[in-house]
């Protein structure tokens, strides 16, 4: 028995139908310096997006408020950076956040990894916070002397916020690492799962060298010693071993993300995509 299907729409008719109901992606072609800033801004934004999943679900009300403050700081930092890059490229912060293709996002993969909604626990959130906050802290300190005056100004404000983020995360890493047997077990699992993604934070590529050469900001590898100086004592106090280095390298900073990024962006971008011409 054969079933008759209606003819498939042709490319022309399909494009016409689609164009009126979704917003297409912008064409984003940053210079290496712009890409350098976008890496930082995107990492802040995507990390904030995962942190925001904890709103209303933290282990205790006080901590709910604290985590949301972290998310708000990060959204603020993302907005400052994306607005700055946007001004140079003819886009606003929202076009960059909501209308870029996945391949044009340059956050570290560490930030996009599944969070609370996918069943990850508070130890995962805390260890991730700590590794990223320590990196941001060392970076912001160096960016205070950026050749880009606007970036230096943004860094001046952000470094104060990031000091607090490091302190908050470090205290929790110690509490959980050196708390109960269960918390120790969960923290070690989180470290084992997340540590391989930290290597990406210290790679070098053409974007880094361009930024370093122009004085915009440091090579990622220049942040490593400072980062270790923050992370290692806290891990020691928490009774956590530093995992051995592996050959694994995540590549989000190059725009090639994990399988999780597609879902994250689908959720984050849905309204702008489905309401073409919308004003919010």
């Amino acid at each position: 028995m054969t079933t008759t299907f209606a003819p498939l729409p042709t490319t022309a008719s399909r494009s016409a139908a689609v164009a009126s109901t979704t917003t297409e992606s912008i064409v984003f072609a940053p210079t290496p310096q712009q890409a350098y800033l976008v890496r930082i801004g995107d990492t802040c934004l995507i990390h904030a997006q995962r942190l925001a999943e904890w709103s209303g679900h933290a282990p205790i009300l006080e901590e709910d408020i604290a985590l949301t403050n972290l998310a708000l700081d990060l959204v603020g930092q993302a907005r400052a950076l994306l607005t700055h890059v946007g001004a140079q490229t003819g886009f606003d912060e929202d076009q960059l956040a909501f209308l870029r293709n996945e391949r044009d996002f340059r956050n570290f993969t560490l930030a996009e990894l599944p969070g609370r909604k996918a069943g990850r626990d508070f130890a995962d959130a805390i260890v991730r916070n700590f590794l990223i906050a320590a990196w941001m802290n060392v970076l912001w300190e160096k960016l205070e002397s950026s050749s880009d005056a606007e970036i230096a100004a943004i860094a001046g404000k952000a470094v104060k916020e990031s000091r607090y983020h490091v302190a908050h995360a470090a205290d929790w890493v110690v509490r959980l690492g050196d708390g109960t047997d269960e918390s120790t077990r969960r923290t070690r699992q989180a470290v084992a799962r997340l540590w391989p993604y930290a290597a990406e934070l210290f790679e070098t590529d053409a974007v880094d060298t361009a930024a370093a050469e122009s004085g915009l900001g440091p090579l990622r590898v220049a942040l490593q010693a400072g980062w270790q100086a923050i992370v290692e004592p806290v891990f020691a106090e928490a009774g956590l071993a530093i995992p051995a280095a592996s050959a694994f390298r995540s590549t989000g900073s190059k725009g090639v993300h994990s399988e999780h990024m597609g879902y994250l962006l689908a959720e984050m971008q849905t309204l702008q995509r489905s309401f073409p011409g919308g004003v919010w």
Binding site: I60, E62, E63, I65, A66, A167, H168, D171
Partner: peptide, 20 residues
């Protein structure tokens, strides 16, 4: 008032809850 496990946390949380 607020609940905290230790004094360091209490200080941090006080800042979050009462000085936003």
């Amino acid at each position: 008032s607020l609940h905290a496990a230790d004094s360091k946390m209490a200080l941090q949380l006080a800042r979050e809850v009462y000085t936003r």
